[in-house]
Simulated assay, not measured.
Amino acid sequence: MLSKIKHKRHIAKTLTWRVVGTLDTIVLSWIISGDPTIGMQIGLTESITKMVLYYLHERVWVKIYIANSRKRHLIKTVTWRVIGTLDTVLLSWFFTGNPYLGLQIGAAEVVTKMLLYYLHERLWYKINFGLDKRIRARKWKRT
């Protein structure tokens, strides 16, 4: 039962983060490339690649215990950003045909996405969706 609960929570976190992340990618790619079509291509392709990568990242992190929630969220933010930035750079390079634009878009996202991801993690930490009562009780004792 517990694993089903965790899967449901991770899927919900994946979907909410992907909406935030995709909008950020579309806007940044559009601004940097000057082409709204490029922004949409990168953002929509990323919506698929990043959902898979994010879900796998969540499954790894469910096995890692770090008592301090802020430290945990900070480390998760950094590890996810490395994975996410590499994905963005490669997709941006592919769609623009320009590795320099790929690096520019990836570099811009490092700043915006880390802030957005940290806020997303903090919000989900306060939401009990998908957690059983034992986990909720432990979580609130650690905060």
Rank of each mutant, 00 (worst) to 15 (best):
I64L: 10
V62S: 12
I48D: 11
V19G: 06
L53D: 04
A108V: 02
L44P: 08
W30E: 03
A137F: 15
I135S: 06
A67Y: 05
S47L: 13
Y54Q: 14
L119Y: 11
W93L: 04
D35G: 02
T79Y: 03
K8T: 14
L53H: 05
M40N: 07
T16H: 00
I135K: 05
G102R: 03
I75T: 03
V19K: 07
N68A: 13
G106C: 10
R136V: 11
L2P: 05
W61I: 09
K126C: 07
L86M: 10
G102T: 04
V20H: 02
F94N: 07
P99S: 12
I42C: 01
L101Y: 04
L15T: 12
I83G: 00
D132K: 10
S33I: 03
I105R: 00
L28S: 04
S3T: 11
L15Q: 10
K139C: 07
L103T: 07
T16R: 04
R138H: 12
G43P: 05
V110R: 02
R72K: 13
L23D: 08
R136M: 14
T112S: 14
D35F: 02
V52H: 11
V78S: 06
L53R: 05
V19N: 07
Y65C: 09
L90D: 00
D132W: 08
I64M: 08
L90S: 01
E109V: 08
K133A: 11
L2K: 14
F129N: 06
Y55R: 14
D24S: 09
W61K: 07
T88E: 00
G97A: 13
V60D: 08
V110Y: 06
I75H: 02
L90T: 00
T77S: 13
E121N: 12
Y117P: 00
T37F: 02
S29M: 08
R138K: 15
A107F: 10
T77R: 03
I5D: 01
I38P: 03
V60E: 09
L101D: 02
R134S: 12
V110F: 09
L86I: 11
L74W: 06
F129Y: 15
I11N: 04
K6F: 06
L90Q: 00
I11V: 15
K139P: 06
I127M: 07
I31E: 04
L74A: 13
S47V: 13
L116G: 03
V78Y: 09
V78Q: 05
K133E: 14
I66Y: 02
L56A: 15
V19Q: 06
S29I: 05
E121G: 05
N68I: 12
T37H: 04
F94W: 09
M114C: 15
I75Y: 03
L103Y: 08
A137H: 15
K63R: 15
F94L: 15
I66P: 02
Q104L: 15
H57V: 11
G34A: 05
L74V: 11
I127K: 06
K139L: 14
S69Y: 15
D35Q: 02
I32F: 11
R134C: 04
R18L: 10
I75L: 13
E109W: 09
